[in-house]
Amino acid sequence: MSAYQLTYQAYGAGAVLVGWPAKIAPEILDDIRCFISFLKEASVPGILEWNSSYCSVLIVFNPMKTNYQALITLLKTYRSVSQDSSEIVPPPCWEIPVCYEPPYAIDLPDVAKEIGMDIQSLISLHTGTEYRVYGIGFLPGFLYLGGLPTSLHLPRKTMPIAVPKGAVAIGGQQTGVYPKDAPGGWHVIGQTPLTLFNSKESPPCQVAVGDAVRFREIDSQQYKTLHKQVEQGAYPLKKYGQ
């Protein structure tokens, strides 16, 4: 029996919005992971796809094959018998190498000044934390990472600027990695040589909602070496500590 009382809302004629309590918490994320693994395994007829973010899951269905009532009845039945989320296999933890040196860390000196911390302590704090993926959105493969230490919380920029692919940034209470060049309002503190989203690969994005992520500091020489390996397809995303 799951602990959270869920809400179900019709979202247009072909989708259901499932809601958890409106807060950002790892326990809710674990429960959402559990819920999604049920959707994956049950392969319910009529369900086309879904996505999730923090405390909600949106399920898109084919109204010719199922309907809102049938779907929520099924989901409620699953909730009444599902196991506790602590019994689910723990998520993988991915390691993302990051270079915090110029020219890859355009906003790092300003950010350090703004929060009143020296650059090395800031890097240690950023790399010393395990983050969780609370959502993937904004761009294909953009990871919303929660768990940023409070002392690194910083309001977003008022105007978005051009941000390069691989930029590792902080914004509000979150940190994230830009999967491609894009306009962005977060503060860029480093860059990873990894490609986190590639439409030509299957799956295009290895990281899933609920997974854990840790950053590892590399210098600009290592960045260049890894970047070359990534371009040759010789450096896959690795699990932390491997």
């Binding site: 923090y54 909600s56 899951v57 959105g137």
Partner: peptide, 28 residues
């Protein structure tokens, strides 16, 4: 808190403007 959206979702910005999300819109 950031939540999923679909093509056809109409959002209301804090400034009071409406945005209709179309086919290439972001997913959240």
């Amino acid at each position: 808190i950031t939540s999923p959206v679909l093509p056809g979702t109409v959002q209301l910005t804090p400034a009071g403007k409406l945005v209709i999300l179309m086919k290439d819109a972001q997913t959240t």
